[in-house]
Amino acid sequence: MEGAFKGFGPKAIPFLKALDFHQSREWFLENRDLFEKELRDPFGDLVETLTERFAAAGLGLRGDRKKSLFRINRDVRFAKDKRPYNRHLSAILSPDGTKMEQGVFYVHIGLERCFADVAWWQPEPALLLAMRKTIATQPDKFRAVVKALKKNSLELETEGCMKRMPRGFEHISEPDLAEAIRNRHFVVQHVIDPAGIHMAELVDELVDFTVRARPLLDWGRAIEGKVPEK
């Protein structure tokens, strides 16, 4: 198909390294064509190819090359670090194609690492509370999700979890449930080999990951559907 993802360009990561070294608007403008050819345009192809594949798999995730990509520019208004450019480029595919939804697919191509997440990231308070209550009151269902993810070689990330139990859940004593309730996010992650970003097969890899992460998507969506809208 027209615009099908064929891989990121061979200079995608070298471009990010050079941009990180220069951190200069003048350098970026001089090399904008390289950015677009090697990194941005292939990323747009990846988003739109994944949108078609996710639709075929019934995953309920979509995006497009204009709305889904995050800017390479950093927002430095309130940051101590005033470097103007990120060390990565990333994108989100979501149920409605915007960056405002929960239960999303996120892909990140960067200098430190390349990875993809399926995530309920920083859900708003009512949804997070509903997720925690579901874990506490329906532990068997939650454990079934964890078991299904483990069977698919995935596990929930625990980075950034609260050190203490949130108010109202102090009575939960089972270690696995307590750990889950302390989460601020519900995320599974797939590490991408940087050598593989240059090949069209990256699409198959990311679709396979997202299919394996479906138990988390389905669990969160069932809870989200019962949270009253504001």
Rank of each mutant, 00 (worst) to 15 (best):
A56R: 14
R53P: 06
R83L: 14
E124Q: 10
L93F: 08
E101P: 06
D75K: 07
L129A: 13
A55T: 11
L154V: 01
N152Y: 04
A180G: 10
L39C: 05
T134D: 14
K147A: 15
D176H: 03
F78W: 09
E170C: 11
M165S: 12
P42H: 09
A56K: 14
K133V: 09
A91Y: 00
R143H: 13
L177V: 13
I135R: 03
K80H: 11
M131P: 08
D140L: 13
R167E: 15
K150H: 13
R132E: 00
N183G: 13
F54P: 07
I72Q: 08
M165Y: 09
S173R: 14
H108L: 05
E124N: 01
D176A: 00
A136W: 00
Q138D: 09
R40T: 00
L127H: 02
D45N: 11
R77Y: 11
H171P: 00
A57K: 11
N183T: 11
R53N: 06
I172N: 04
N73L: 14
A178P: 05
V107K: 01
F169L: 09
E101S: 15
A178V: 13
L59R: 04
E155S: 13
R182T: 03
S153D: 14
V47I: 14
M162S: 13
R132K: 12
A126K: 09
T158W: 00
Y106D: 08
T98H: 05
M131F: 13
L111E: 06
Q138A: 12
H108K: 05
P95W: 14
